[in-house]
Nucleic acid binder design. Structure first.
Lengths: 139, 139
DNA sequence: CTCTATCTGCAAATTGTTTGCATTTACATT
DNA sequence: AATGTAAATGCAAACAATTTGCAGATAGAG
């Protein structure tokens, strides 16, 4: 909660009711949320918030690297707080549930990329797909 | 070219002018293409093709695992032929150009994922972000 | 308390993608 | 080669996610 106040103070952006609500929702959520889902939750806190504000706040938070934007291939993005612990998601192709997995193999790969491309590497995105234990029988 | 005929024969789908054009375009393209870009190229071959057909053909080809669907975070997908060689992309955050990089660190990671989640792993998506040599100075 | 830049809500515009339906076409069969 | 039919196409319209323009509201510095 003080995190939230601190973030806005540090960023120089105004801490409005709407922004506070959205950031709270994202911080409290164990799963990642679509803009629509954030909007619905935010309405419980502040009934006349609008979707536009959700999108604008997402963009704001993302510009401060507070959020990760996640794509699972269904034409809409989902968002989650960019915690400092690094992890990736595994997504069930049956029921579409996502789970975090700890660890990351990418750093070991980066020197190879640098050698191949001379890029300055900033980050990466990795998602793994498969079937969760419950869906393995049914598909 | 015979690849194309063979693919349609094997799949049992009809080989129409439109589908042939789209598959040719994807096979000849060194970069991945959005639906719109495929559509524009396809018009040069068959002027009265429509976007709907492009989308439907993309979906068809993807269902036969002929295509990879790529998301670079700008609200639209891009597609490329799923060659049997496995690689990933590095994307320049400056000029948005993409390059292939050979190799993949994910298989080494899979046993850890299996241990954590009991998932049956089918595939993965990995993109690396950074700045290309030309953009490193300018940003 | 006041002032002003910043932020919000609303409605409408955009953009990417999908769907319904009448017409056309590929191609198996004669 | 001609025919019949399921499958594919084009068009227009529907959808869904996201973005934009603008007038009014608000946070927070002074």
């Amino acid at each position: 909660m003080n995190d939230i106040k601190d973030f806005f103070a540090a960023s120089g952006c105004k801490m409005t009711k709407q922004r506070k609500a959205i950031l709270e929702i994202l911080m409290d959520s164990r799963t990642c949320l679509s803009a629509e889902e954030i909007f619905i939750k935010a309405k419980n806190i502040n009934p006349n918030i609008c979707l536009t504000t959700v999108y604008r706040t997402i963009e704001l938070l993302a510009s401060y690297r507070m959020l990760n934007k996640i794509d699972i291939g269904d034409n809409k993005y989902r968002y989650e707080i960019n915690s400092n612990t690094h992890y990736h998601h595994i997504i069930c192709m049956g029921c579409k549930k996502m789970f975090k997995v700890q660890g990351c193999p990418v750093p070991d790969f980066e020197s190879s990329i640098r050698a191949q491309t001379k890029f300055k590497i900033i980050g990466h995105r990795l998602e793994v797909y498969g079937y969760c234990p419950e869906c393995q029988g049914t598909v």
